[in-house]
Design a protein around this nucleic acid. Structure first.
Lengths: 334, 334
DNA sequence: TTGTAAGCGTTATCAA
DNA sequence: TTGATAACGCTTACAA
């Protein structure tokens, strides 16, 4: 039971594209159609449209987790930009498990998504072949890649800038609470960035002063506890993510340590809380929502057949707040 | 160019349903099919399947925002449960704007979603008719409704329990930083819950001691500043959400006020941070992820034609921490 | 500019 | 149990 041919010409009013090449239909006809649309409350069936046009107007996004405010913000930005262009967002998360990420990708690809947004460059080896086979443009967020379209920043360099800053204010014994580096290029690069920056200064990142913890407040506390238990405890602790740094901050308080007096703490992300909390968290600002918005643009343009820049860099910046300060003069304190 | 008829019988291997009624095909035939599937790397086209079966195996969810950790957690729970059942999640947000929510709903409905998850009971009047017309089962999260399927809790009662507690430890001058009550039944009910609880005790909620602020840390600070500027300042401040309470906590610190010594502060949500921060935030625990998981179950069962409970209540509980204590004896202090 | 018909890749129905 | 054949509601190409 089809709607009148006329009505069929009109499409979903919430989207912005012209259903029919403008000018290919005369005003009176168009009006007649619009009237029918109104009267019948007609809404095009996107399902049929997708099958026939081989375009679903749906983008897929797979993130490690939505429980991390930084990814939630990225998805929020992506969704908003997509909605503005008549696209819809299919979302999935994998809890930092690349096998699961692949499974999710297969499902989304099977759903006919027109494009895919992924976080970072570590993925299941089969993933790339899958997206290629489906012909769905893919873009990696939160990273910059030489051989795959990406929108993000250089994690190593950003982390290095943090280490450089800590070095510049006098820290020599620096520790790090890194995120899980296995299957996570961002965590790995941030750790390596800190290591490299210190190495360039002639300071080594003591392996014992590096702990790896899952992202979480509790884990941050734990990591901090471990570092503070070291005999030669670091005077500054760089964290792979703000949540880890918040945990470290709380643990320092529990331990009766003054921040930044006894120990400096720095994070990565600049969550809204970073500016409000305790001494104010020194961190690296990541424009999560912008990454999402740029990813939307990027994908939509590629879907339209346009050529776009392979790597789009978004700005990150070191934000110095009260949680970091020069270390106590050697010998004094403690 | 179709795949062999045999292969066509087999469906996406990542989902769990039986493509063909078990037993309706003999083992040898089935094996022949599976072999073909493997060889060709066949993956059913969900788009065509959706058109033909009128079932997309996709659920839509529209939340106010993903930038609020509590909703992000709910969506995470929903997504996880859905994925386990072979369903996929289409998501949208509306920034607390019901017109936008309706627009998003129309788009998702047009996409052929099999079910819809919405937050609260305040919606655009047209929304209900739309979902009904499409025949898509809808469930409201974060609330309990008498006439619409819902999964959540009684916001008024939960807020009242918080007020009762504040009253029980001696507070009589209680203030509130509520969320925007327009178009938001949860914010409204929480405010009314506090008001009613105090009224039952013979204490009135002074209108001047009630400020309404958008959900955000900065807004919480502002609200707290306003309340503390009152000549007869409240001895306890109930907040409509944890983020507001965190802001209030930070502002109290800026103001040089001791919490809970000078003023008690309570929140609503029990975000992970509540247990870690400053004095520990007294709050109402909301099982966000559970709401999402239950919503997934609920929708899937209704889609399958099963009859399910109209209202499913999830437990909330008052969590008392260090941010609340009996008020200073009248006359002392200040 | 408008109308018509042939797919799009499944599901569903009905014969065989 | 298997095979064939309509839908499903659009888009697209082509004819009028």
């Amino acid at each position: 039971m089809n709607v009148t041919t006329a009505a069929k010409r009109r499409r979903n009013s919430t989207t912005r594209e012209t259903p029919v090449p403008s000018g290919s239909v005369r005003a009176p006809t168009r009006e007649r159609v619009e009237a029918a649309v109104q009267r019948l409350g007609y809404e095009a069936d996107a399902t049929a449209r997708a099958l026939a046009s081989r375009r679903s107007h749906t983008i897929g996004a797979i993130v490690p987790t939505l429980d991390d405010a930084i990814f939630a913000a990225g998805i929020e930005g992506l969704q908003r930009a997509l909605a503005g262009e008549g696209y819809t967002l299919l979302i999935a998360s994998h809890e930092y498990d690349l096998d699961q990420e692949l499974a999710q990708a297969r499902t989304l690809l099977g759903r006919g998504i027109d494009g895919l947004f992924l976080i970072g460059k570590d993925h299941h080896p089969e993933l790339r072949a899958r997206t290629r086979a489906r012909g769905a443009p893919t873009v990696l967020g939160w990273t910059l890649s030489a051989d795959e379209p990406s929108i993000g920043f250089d994690n190593a360099r950003a982390a290095a800038s943090l280490a450089d800053y800590l070095w510049s204010i006098g820290h020599r014994r620096i520790g790090m609470i890194a995120g899980p580096t296995a299957e996570n290029d961002r965590a790995r690069e941030r750790l390596e960035g800190v290591r490299a920056a210190l190495a360039r200064r002639g300071v080594a990142l003591d392996p014992r002063a590096v702990v790896e913890r899952a992202y979480g407040l509790e884990e941050g506390r734990e990591g901090m506890r471990a570092l503070m238990a070291l005999e030669d405890r670091p005077t500054a602790v760089a964290c792979g993510k703000d949540v880890l740094a918040f945990g470290a901050l709380f643990e320092a308080a529990s331990l009766g340590l003054d921040v930044p007096g006894d120990v400096s703490i720095a994070g990565f992300d600049d969550l809204p809380l970073a500016a409000q909390i305790g001494p104010g968290l020194t961190t690296v600002g990541v424009p999560a929502s912008l990454i999402g918005a740029r990813a939307a643009e990027h994908l939509i343009r590629r879907i339209a057949g346009e050529t776009v820049a392979t790597a789009t860099e978004v700005p990150t910046r070191l934000i110095v707040r009260g949680s970091t300060a020069p270390p106590r003069a050697r010998g004094s304190g403690e």
